[in-house]
Every structure is written in C-alpha cells, then in structure tokens.
Design a protein around this nucleic acid. Structure first.
Lengths: 340, 340
DNA sequence: TTGAAAGCGCTAACAA
DNA sequence: TTGTTAGCGCTTTCAA
C-alpha cells in the first residue's frame, strides 16, 4: 500500500485503467467525464494515496499558490501577529505563505524579492523597509504579480494597507495635552520608515494645534538598543525644565524608557506620564499599566490577505485598493496631569 | 530591455546563438563548456535580466529548496524568535522557509503536512503540537524528506532539538527551594505538549530531592486565558497555608499571575516570590523584574536549521542527530526568602 | 565542445 | 466520453 516512491497521476491512471488525461479530468472534475470513471479514478487515487504534485501543477498552470511576505523582523510581535493572521486567511484560500526577513537592509530585501520572483510567488506582501528596490517591484508588476504594501508605498497602481500612524500619534499627543502636559518627550524608533515619519507628523500636528512648537531637544528618533533608549530617557529627564510626559513609539522605546525612568526612581504617573503607541504585553501588564493608542493586528493581517486575494481573483474587478486601519486610545494607569 | 514577459533560457540561448542545452551548461558551469561561450551566455543572460525559473528547476531536479516549518502559533515570541533565526540560516544556504500555523489542532497540522508534502518541501521542521499524525510523517520519511523535531519526538530515525525543559524547571524549583520556599505553586500552560510534561517532571523531581511531595492543589496546568490564570493565582493564594512562591511556565502564565497578584495587592517579592521559565520583555521589564530560567532562541533557530541542512547535505554523513539546548537561571528581583 | 532530444508530472487542446 | 499529444522551463543524457 504505502510504497516507497510517491505516486503520480500515471499510477492512478494505470490503476483505474484509463489514460492520464482522463485521470486528470476526473480528479479535477473538469470537462466531460462519466460519473463512473470519476468514481473509479477517485478510488484508485485514494487507494494509492495519490496527491497531485504542486510543482508540476505550478509549472503547467503558471500559478504557485504561494504568497511571499517580507518584513524587517519576523520576531517583532507587531509583525508576527500580522503574519499569523495573514497566513490563516491565505491558507483558507489555498495559498501558502513564504516569509522573509529583510533586517531592514536594502540588499537583503532585494535578494529576497529576487528569490521570490524566481520562485514565482503569485503575490507579494511588503512591509516597511528602509529600501526602495523600485526596479525589482516594477518587474514583478509587469509580470502580473500583484504587490500589497503594508505601511509602505509600493506604487500607485498597487493595493496598500496603512495603519493610521499619523492619527495614532496625533490622538496620543492630544490626550497628553488635554491632561495639561506641555513638554512631551517623543521617543521614536526610526524616522526613516514610513510609520515613524507619520507618527512624528501626527505629534507635531497636535502640538501645533495648541500653538506649541515641537522642540528638537524633546524628540529622539534613532534606531537603537534598549539600553541606549534608557539613557536617552534619563538625559531627557535631566533637561530643565524636564518633560512631564513621554510618548513612546514602538515596543523597544517603551521598554527602554521604562527602564530608564525606573533606574532614576521616577514614578509613573506621579513624576512623569507615559503613553505608548502600539499595544504589547509589556504595556498591558506593567505596573502601572501603560496607556496606549493601538490597533488590531489580526485585522491587519486579515485585510492584507484579503487585499491580496482580491487582486488575485480574476473573476473580481481586482482594482488596487487602499485601506486605512483606524486606531484606538486605551486609557490605563500611566497618564496623569503634571504635578498632580 | 525590460520586456513584458519573463525571459526563459530559450531567450538566452537565442541571444547568445547557442542551443538551450549549452546555455544551461554555461549558466551552471557544469560539464564541458568553452570559456568563450560561458562569457557569451552569461552576458546575454545579464542583458535580458534572465533568472532561472525555480519551479521548472524544482520539477527537473526534484528539489524545491524550500523547508516547511510548523508551529502552534507563529506570533508566540518563543516561536517567532526561533523562526526568524532559522529563516536566516536557511536563507544563507539558499533555502526558503514556508511557515504554517497549526493552532495546536491535529487536523490543521495534518492538512499542513499534506500541503507541504504536495509542495515537495525538501524538509520539514515540526514544533510541538497536541497531535501525532504519524502516518503522514512516515510517508514523508519514506520519500526521503527529512524531518527535524523541535521539542517534539518525530520518530527515532529523525533529528531533533530539545530545549531542556525538565532541567529548566528543575533548576527553577531548586532555586526557590534554596531560598527556603516549601510551598511552590506551579502554573503551566498545558501538560499535553512535551515541554509542559517535561517541566512538571522537573518540578516534581526537585521537590522529591528535598523530600517534598508535589501537592496537587498547588499545580494548575490548563491551557487558559490570561484572565483565567489571574483568578487561578488568586485562588492559589487563598489556600491555607498559602504558597510562598509561584513558578510560571510560559508567558501567558506569568502575565496572568502578575495580574492576579497585583489585583490582590500582593507585593513581589515581599509577599510572594515569582520565577518564570522562558524570558520575555515582560519578565525583563516588569517592576520588579522577574527572575527566569531561559535559553537562547536564536541558537535554537540556528541549530534547527543546521540540523536540517546536515540531513539535506548528501555529501555529509547525514545521520539524524539529537541536540539538547541548555538553560540558564537569570536572577533578578522577584525572588526572596519567605517571610523575609 | 556542442546540439538534439528526452523527460520531470501535470493540464488542456485536439482527435477519435 | 475518452485517448493522444504538446508543452510549461529546465537539466542531462547521448550523439555528433
């Protein structure tokens, strides 16, 4: 029964006493086949444990049923959660997900795009990256491989999903302003990527609405280690007058900030308020818990998959779409009025 | 130059004025080819932007250069970190990584194994799952698809990597015993999976060494939500005599425990000590920081890839191997002596 | 050293 | 309704 070598459609055809063409039609229920042969072929296939070879199918059908996804860091919870949801949705539609880590390096991303192209992925989902690689993407586009951008622009004729980072930072800043804070320190992971830029813009905008100028000495936007962020937080607190609130953008920033404040014996929210953009276990479970402006990772992953499937589905209109994911403020314990 | 359709080796051959056989040999530098034609063909390929079609190569060479990896939850940081490292190492060796989420469901895992088999992955890395799917795995094995188990047994003739969970829990328990704790509550995510079982064994063993019996009322091992864990923690603390220390196995358990203790106004480590197995941001950055017994996720991912590559490399011996990853205790602020 | 041709496993067009 | 055949793009015999 279980034979050493994998069965091909040839084996099935032979076992059912039909030609391979007929076997193929019977298995796929395509074209004219008698019900009797369908049953005979299906049974033979089952008995042999036959599974069609996806590679051969891909070659023939020019579709691999594989979607590639590129992110800077698979292990970043914000990406991991999205990937998980996207994979789930894609799997339902029969697609598999090939993932790649760019480490935020342009060459690595280029190499991966190339690799995915060679592997003939049916579509590509691209997360933010400090890279352009426009020619490669255009090439994919010309070969009818749809691209879906995630917090990233990948061409005007492609679909894109964008978390509303600008508004997230805007709302966060407003929340702090409403509490009476005027000197709000901003710690952002990197202004090079689109989300980082957007957030800084939102922060600036909220400030401007109240007639405040963003102060350069209150904004720190480097990609950096947690220890470095901790010392940044300390250096910010040694300014005179010191900031009364911290707005942290990204997990690492929050972690470093908390560490820095703690080392200095500063209490949250009595001595300083903290608000973070993007929810994490840390924010939820820290004592005190950290207020946050956040969004639904599962929704993001699902919608990314959905955007992709829509472009892939030939029966649909298939026009590129643009989706903005809204954000919500979750108030917890880390924000108070200055000097309260 | 950039033509609408992708170039094939036929185009390259035509452009270089040679046959496709020669073009193939020249591009792969295999067999006898004159240096002159190699150059001519290579140039033609470059000019046309030719990239060999991986699907066609796969069909012909019977190797897809794709490795499948199955875990219960991609977004679990413990898996995400491992996947990231594994992908990195595999990519260096020219392999791509196809990932799948089993959600810890046997059918889903079975479906994914099947899918990967159909896609002819060259190898399969399988994380722990409450599933057996032995026949499917045997089938893969019979088709010379190596399987590498990660915290999971996948057959005696397969490679496996195991974090030493038993020892981790053993060391953790001993650490608490050494501090003078006698009533140590154990919160484990699930005793169904191998890591869970091992950990409970380690806990029991350390206790037995000191002549303590593991008390059933101190052990809670269900898969459960964070809120549920919090109430479990509270119910444990209402025992008389109450436990003086908590050993939490897994992120969710730690998070729930911390929340429960906090709701009850219990201070760490004054009122109760907490030690967790598996390091996370939360453990590192919680106030107070939580001591942990942990291991190197990057090493795990790297070694998984290494095990796989070794089995794939025909030039090597290729015998299945078994690797045990050691764990280390990191003392932080969450453990003290009872009543100190 | 090169070209011609077979064939990987499959589907689809065309004949029968 | 079924069988035969071409061909997806590639590598690798086998002849020349």
């Amino acid at each position: 029964m279980t034979n050493r070598s994998r069965k091909t459609i040839k084996d099935v055809a032979a076992a059912a006493g039909v030609s391979i063409g007929t076997a193929s039609r019977a298995l796929n229920r395509r074209g004219r086949v008698s019900e009797a042969t369908v049953i005979r072929v299906t049974n033979a296939a089952k008995k042999l444990g036959y599974q069609p070879d996806a590679i051969a199918q891909s070659l023939r059908l020019k579709s691999t049923m594989v979607i590639g996804m590129l992110v800077t860091d698979l292990s970043n919870p914000f990406f991991a959660g999205v990937i998980r949801a996207a994979e789930k949705r894609l799997q339902q539609a029969g697609y598999a997900l090939l993932v790649g880590n760019t480490d935020n390096e342009s060459e690595r991303e280029g190499a991966l795009i190339d690799l995915f192209r060679r592997r003939r992925v049916d579509g590509l989902i691209m997360g933010p990256c400090a890279a352009e690689n426009v020619p490669l993407l255009e090439d994919l586009d010309q070969n009818d491989v749809p691209i879906v951008g995630y917090d990233r622009d990948v061409g005007s004729d492609q679909s894109g999903l964008h978390v509303d980072h600008r508004r997230a930072a805007y709302e966060a800043t407003r929340h702090l302003l409403n509490l009476g804070h005027e000197r709000i320190a901003l710690l952002s992971s990197s202004s090079k990527l689109s989300p980082g830029r957007e957030r800084i813009a939102g922060y600036t905008e909220a400030l401007a609405e109240r007639g405040f100028e963003p102060r350069d000495d209150l904004i720190r936007a480097h990609k950096s280690s947690m220890d470095f962020v901790a010392s940044e937080a300390l250096s910010l607190m040694s300014l005179r007058p010191a900031p009364t609130a911290f707005l942290t953008l990204g997990t690492r920033m929050l972690a470093g900030t908390l560490q820095g404040l703690r080392q200095n014996g500063l209490r949250i929210p009595q001595d300083v308020s903290v608000l973070t953009v993007g929810d994490t276990d840390l924010a939820r479970l820290h004592a005190p818990s950290i207020s946050t402006v956040t969004w639904d990772l599962e929704l993001v992953g699902q919608m990314l998959a959905e955007l992709m499937l829509r472009r892939l589905d030939k029966s649909e209109d298939g026009a590129p779409q643009r989706i903005i994911i809204p954000t919500q403020l979750i108030e917890r314990e880390s924000c108070g009025s200055p000097g309260a």
